[in-house]
Design a protein around this nucleic acid. Structure first.
Lengths: 162, 162
DNA sequence: TACCCGAGTTGCACGATGAGACTGAACGCC
DNA sequence: GGCGTTCAGTCTCATCGTGCAACTCGGGTA
């Protein structure tokens, strides 16, 4: 049994979840985006078991999402920082936050993500890279096999349920 | 111990993860978007243990992400469909897929999400709801306390690591 | 020297998951 | 009527993941 893997799925969602899908991992990453660097600070902010935190940080470093940087020589002390690949997970976190804000925040959004350029609210939206249309919904997109598809690749004619 | 909850976190990401963060849940939802409806089909597509699948489907129904619809009277048979709230999780799935495509797909993307209107590729991007800017990165956004914030709410002056 | 801090490491109990068998209510066929 | 098949679960048990709490080690400081 491979507790975090989805070996039978030829699917990028599954590949991503193999790295960030374990309990606590996405919240560890949220902390990274919020500026947390050190082991004890992660532990305090999250209230997470130290062995679980250590395992999560180590995994994220191994997967190239975080890197360890020495901030002190004696004793050697390290902090954890997002790599470029790690920073590229921001849309995932903001999409999750967006859904929670809309559907599970009776008191309103605890935090807002604002555009530094104009002060507007930022969310993760489906956008077309060709024509620039944003805010697309399921009924406006189709799933097709891509370059990494295998015979019998799981696709559907449409993502919109009837 | 509450295995899926993050009770100490006043954070919409945590609220969302309490519903979709367990192993297999997001892949169950992927299947819903691809058109899967019935218990056995989910089980076959995912290769998931039947008791785990049942628990996941039941949870998603309880949380209002899926609904059961009877498709047959004798014996009573139900299928599972996304609710509006469930469909609103599409950006989460596509953001996860996007990251996997960019960072974990040596053979290229197994599937592509295309804009039905023009045929362009669709991805989940950070967009400003006020000025319409898209493709924003961490350095271009700030986190501030929102209406649901509590005293001492966890925010940071910027989401861009130094 | 004693104490504190930071970054882990360790041991153990309990819950989550996986594998596989089982159940019940049909339906169709011989 | 009996049998086999299908579908949607239910159940049992072994293994692994997580949580709790204590411990370890290598410093620095009073």
């Amino acid at each position: 049994m491979l507790g975090r893997e989805y070996a039978t799925q030829n699917c990028s969602i599954a590949r991503t979840l193999e790295i960030v899908g374990e309990r606590w991992t996405l919240l560890v990453l949220r902390e990274c985006f919020l500026g947390t660097r050190r082991f004890d600070d992660f532990q305090k902010q999250l209230g997470i078991a130290r062995n679980v935190l250590q395992a999560r940080l180590e995994r994220l470093v191994d997967e190239g999402v975080l890197e360890r940087r020495r901030y002190q020589e004696r004793p050697p002390r390290y902090e954890y920082r997002l790599t470029e690949a790690g920073r590229d997970l921001l849309p995932v976190l903001i999409a999750l936050m967006g859904w929670g804000d809309r559907h599970r925040a009776p008191a309103g959004a605890p935090t807002l993500i604002l555009h530094e350029g104009c002060g507007g609210t930022v969310d993760a939206a489906l956008a077309c890279e060709q024509c620039g249309a944003t805010g697309l919904r399921g009924a406006q997109v189709v799933v097709v096999a891509g370059p990494g598809a295998v015979p019998g690749q799981r696709v559907s004619a449409t993502t919109a349920p009837a």
